[in-house]
Amino acid sequence: MITYLIRRLVYSVPILFGVNIITFALFFLVNSPDQMARKQLGEHRVTMDAVEKWKTERGYNVPLLWNSTSTGTGRVRDTVFYATSARLFSFNFGQSDSGRDIGYDIRERMGPSLAIAIPALIIQILLATTLALFVSVLRGSRLDRWTTTVCVGLMSVSSLFFIMAGQYVMAKLLRLVPISGYADGWAMAKFVLLPVIVQVLASLGANVRWYRTVFLEENAKDYVRTARAKGLSDATVMLRHVLRNALLPLLTNIVVILPGLFLGSLITESFFAIPGLGSYTIEAIQNQDFAAVRAMVFLGSLLYIVGLILTDISYAWADPRIRLGKA
């Protein structure tokens, strides 16, 4: 188990390296350090000296990938790429191009993102499993058919519609919640309510359908039939047996979407002015703040890899037949 973990972690290093190269390449194709400097310094009366000074201080004054003026390992080490990548691996994100400490900002903004993501995730799972259990019991009934149809319908609606309609109806027409904004503490509830509802609704269709398939597959298995034959009630069979055995795919699914939760939803956050990591990322892209984008990409990939590993572990934990390390 431990060796497996270590091996997987070692594997992740080249992946993170590759991710870094991709972001680096894409970003510096778009921007030269000169342009970044001007963007950060403002447009009025900026002299070449000021640009040079900014570049020197941020370490953008050396070549990007290969320093031919240096010697030995310096050729690789005295470059923008090396200087900015090496730091990331020690989780030292450094300063953003606008001069703020990135690590601090990320810690600050994690809270609001999670404040939306966690309630949304929990409600979504509870609601979707309940509905799915319900309709899989009533398999083939009119309710089942209608639910499936409604689910496909919900899946076919763009999430933008949910957000816009939600804002219009709940905030403007019915005046039940604020249009957008955020607050700390208990006051957060009224700001979080609408985004959570919207997120749950937007993913409800796909989730219910998927859980329903999982339950139905489980339902068709022999042990369930045996249980039924023993005269156990629908509810007992469903809750005791089906739900428990269906936990594994559900768990996997949750692990896979975890990094997404952490990074926040770009669209929801920017529509509702939630100061989370999603809106941080969008801002960084719009301001061409390379250092911040870099850090977010790095974190995102890391979480993805961790998610993969967790999936494997959860499989092994839930199903003793699977032994790790024998992939």
Binding site: V19, F27, V30
Partner: peptide
Amino acid sequence: QYLYTTLASVPGVLLIAAAALTLDL
């Protein structure tokens, strides 16, 4: 496997955004 894990691990929107900026350029 390395290729697709690397690509898949970059948050999709970020990758697309950066690529779209490059495309504009």
